[in-house]
Every structure is written in structure tokens, then in C-alpha cells.
Amino acid sequence: MSGRQGYDVVVDVDAEGDLGHTDLNDDLEFHNSTFDTNPTRGGPKVAPDQPSTFGAPPSSSSKRYLWSITFYQQFFALDSAALLLRCRSALYPRANFLDVLDGNPDLYGPFWIATTVIVILFMTGTISQYLAETGKGHFAYDFRLLSGAAGLVYGYTLFIPLGLWGVLRWFGSEGANLLECWALYGYGNLIWIPVALVSWSPLTALNYAFVAVGFGLSATFLIRNLYPIISATDAKISRILLIVVLVLHAGLAIAIKILFFAHGSPAAKDGTQLPDPIGDGNKDAGSVVRMLLRV
């Protein structure tokens, strides 16, 4: 066979003619597959970057969690270092305060700042009244100053941000967050602590200057941080809201000056001791002050 090529194959066969152990079934074991088993069964899946809702816990099986203390503890869980950082950023703003909050607004700082402002307003307002009535007979403390300060500061810090948040949500601002609004206004009150500490002097012009500085700094703080949120609405609406924010804040500053640091006001038994701030000879503001204090 000249056209064929042959191959020689050598096979080693044992004496019994067995080619090797080929019974594989004796060495194999089969198990049920676990590929379809959920390793996290029994526990909830948590997305690490899932946005949080308004203070709601990750999972709540109870419909009454709003009435539990643990629900509100998360808004007061703030260490001293974070509190000092936020206070410093409110007094010396170098960055947007909402960036400092970093998506974790608190109510601990706003509550104690507002409470401190109330106590200091009562103390310095009493000192201002005492200096105005020195030599005019027995001096009596007027605790309406304390209740007036509490109503003014707590009411402003609670209801103005709430109303602003509601209006922003009504006009479609998705960036509005109620807790951030409360935190922003709460930390914005910090400037009134040093203002109240130095505004007890009998020098009316100096007191007006101190209050004006406090108003300017706190208003700048509010507008700077609220503008990105308010500007998300219609241009006309945003301008109106900015003006309303400034007017309401100016009302707070004027109320602080007139109610607590005007000579003889608001504890004066008559309105004759009030200064004439606009120089038109009208000193009937005492009746207005007394009316406000009765509310």
C-alpha cells in the first residue's frame, strides 16, 4: 500500500484486560444547588445611598411611631464637636450652612440657642428697665418680659420656617426640607445672644446700632442659605418670598429693640417713658407695647 501512512499505537493492558477504573458513579456525590437561595432572607435590604424621608426611621412596623420618644431622639443626637462647628459656621459663615449640615439637620442646637436668647433677653431687658427707673421708687421685676421673649423667639423660630416650607412646597420647590428650615432659622438666632448682652445700656442710639448689626448679619445668613432653595421657584415668586423673609426678620429685630431695650418699656406702667425713635413727637407706643404683651 504505497499511498497509506500507518500509525503504531501501544496500549498497556494488565493481566485481567482491565483498562483502568472507569466507574465514576462510586466517587461522585450530588448536592442540591443553593444558587437561588436568598442569603439575606429574614432581614431587610438597605440601600446605602437611599435618600431618607422626613425623619422616618428605616423600618417602622408601628403606625404610632410619631408618638414615641425614640422617633424624636434622632433629631437631638448631636455631639459637642458638631454643635460647635455649626455654631461657628453660623457666626462666621464661609460656606453654605446647608453643606455644613451635610443632610443631617438637628433640633438640639436650635432649641437651646432659642432658649438662651430668651433668658438673656429677659435678664438684659430687666437691667435696661432698672437703669431707666433708677431713683423713681421701688423697682419690681416684670416677668412679662420672660413670657414675651419666649413667645417672640419660640414663635418666630417655629412658625416662620414652617410657613416658608409650606409655601415652597406649594410652589414646587423640591429642595425644601422642613428640618433644614428649622435648623437654619434656629442657628440664625445665635447672633442675638451677643447683641442682647451689649444692648442693655441707656444709650438709645448705641442700642439701635447693635440691633442693626445683629439684623444685618442674621439676615445675610438667612438669605445666603435660603436663596438656592427659593430661587428654584418662579422668578417673581422667589423675589416676593425673599422680600417677605427680610420683612419678617426686620420685624423680629424691631420687636427685640422696642420690647426689651427701650427705656421704660415694656414694663412701664404708662407709656410716657418711651423714647421718640422717629422724632415726630408721638410717644403713644407704650399703649401698643402693653397691647402686645397682653396677647
Rank of each mutant, 00 (worst) to 15 (best):
S52V: 14
K63N: 15
L164S: 07
A15E: 09
N225R: 05
P93K: 01
D79G: 13
I237L: 09
L91A: 00
D27Y: 12
A15F: 03
P58E: 08
H138G: 06
R64T: 13
L190I: 15
R94N: 11
P110F: 09
I254C: 11
F71C: 02
T22V: 12
I230P: 03
L28K: 13
G125C: 02
G279P: 01
F221H: 05
L145K: 03
T37W: 06
Y187E: 15
L145A: 04
P202M: 04
S238R: 02
S218E: 12
M123D: 01
G109V: 11
W200P: 04
L101H: 10
W165Y: 15
L252M: 13
L85C: 02
L274T: 10
L292S: 03
F30S: 00
A56C: 03
W170R: 09
N25P: 00
T134E: 10
N104K: 15
S199W: 07
T124W: 00
Y154K: 10
D27T: 13
P39A: 06
G17Q: 06
Q129A: 15
R94M: 08
W170G: 02
N38Q: 08
P58C: 02
V13K: 10
F171H: 03
L19C: 05
A253Q: 04
T115A: 08
L84N: 00
D280H: 11
R4M: 03
V195P: 00
V198D: 12
L178T: 04
T126E: 12
P39D: 01
L241S: 04
G264S: 07
T220C: 08
T134M: 01
A47V: 02
I256E: 06
G42Q: 08
W165M: 05
F139S: 10
N32F: 04
I237T: 15
K63Q: 09
H249A: 08
Q5E: 00
A176Q: 04
V13P: 06
L206Q: 11
T134G: 01
V153D: 11
P39F: 01
G6H: 08
P44M: 05
F111G: 05
I258H: 09
H138L: 03
Q129D: 15
G214R: 09
G166Y: 01
W67R: 04
S59D: 01
S33I: 09
L259I: 09
N104L: 08
L78Y: 14
L84V: 13
F139K: 11
G42M: 03
G281Y: 07
S52N: 02
P57I: 03
F75S: 08
V167I: 13
E133F: 06
A183T: 13
D12W: 02
S60Y: 01
L101C: 15
H138Q: 10
D8I: 08
L226W: 07
Y7N: 04
S173I: 03
G155F: 06
Q273H: 14
V119A: 14
A235C: 00
A140Y: 15
I223G: 04
L24C: 00
L184Y: 06
G42N: 04
G20L: 08
S59C: 00
A255W: 14
E180M: 11
A253V: 04
I278Y: 14
V195R: 05
A253K: 01
W67Y: 15
V289F: 14
L246K: 06
A176S: 15
N38A: 04
G163R: 02
S61N: 01
G271S: 01
